[in-house]
Simulated assay, not measured.
Amino acid sequence: MTGDEIVLGALPKGITLAGEGMEKKVWNVLGHTYYMKAASGTSFAFETYDPPGTGVPPHVHPRQDEHIYVLEGVFTLYLDGAWETAGPGETVRMPMGLPHAYYNRGEAPTRGLFWVSPAGRLAELFDGLHNLQDPDEVVRLSAAHDVEFLPMGSVEGA
């Protein structure tokens, strides 16, 4: 299944097994592992595994709302100018246009269930980012898929 098929298609019925991605889709992006859990034109969900010291710098989804349901560990979050933390069982809401970031600054891995709506081109972006090691290329590809990273150094503590 390609990103284009996901975006254009309806949500298929079924079960995505624990420890797997829907249709076995798993991405490795700069130290994170993302498991696709559900994908359609209207919604996209993925589980993350984030080792200590990893994170996603401040960025904006101008056309998508994003949520995180924390499964394990504690995420350090940048939400529109404020630093906060969220732990297991808590849900983080990031409306479209809100600058945000997340980091694992703890000693243990974190896991979260993320979802965005509408799906946009996020699955296609993750296809392009899989196993990519150049942060500048990550920023370039992200911008081409409606995810805008803020300039480095523009957020204190990021």
Rank of each mutant, 00 (worst) to 15 (best):
V70R: 08
K13H: 09
A108H: 13
S43M: 11
T42N: 07
Q64S: 15
L98H: 09
Y34R: 02
H130N: 15
V56D: 00
P151R: 09
K37H: 06
T48S: 14
V139K: 11
G87I: 06
L113M: 14
T16P: 01
V139E: 02
V139M: 03
L79P: 08
V26K: 12
L132K: 12
S142G: 01
P57S: 11
Y35S: 14
M152Q: 15
D80H: 11
Y35G: 11
K13Y: 11
I6S: 00
I6A: 07
A101L: 07
K13F: 02
G120R: 08
N28L: 02
R105W: 06
T91F: 01
D50E: 14
A86L: 07
Q133F: 14
P58D: 08
Y49F: 12
G153Y: 07
P118N: 11
P52G: 05
L30D: 00
Y103P: 03
M96H: 15
G41T: 01
V116Y: 02
M152D: 13
H100C: 10
A86I: 03
V29K: 00
E90V: 04
G19D: 09
M94N: 03
T16Y: 03
W27C: 01
A18H: 06
G128N: 11
Y34P: 08
G89R: 04
V70E: 06
A143P: 02
L150H: 14
V7P: 05
R93E: 15
H145Q: 00
T16G: 00
D136R: 14
S117D: 04
L8G: 08
I6W: 12
G112S: 11
H100E: 06
V138M: 14
Y78V: 07
L71Q: 11
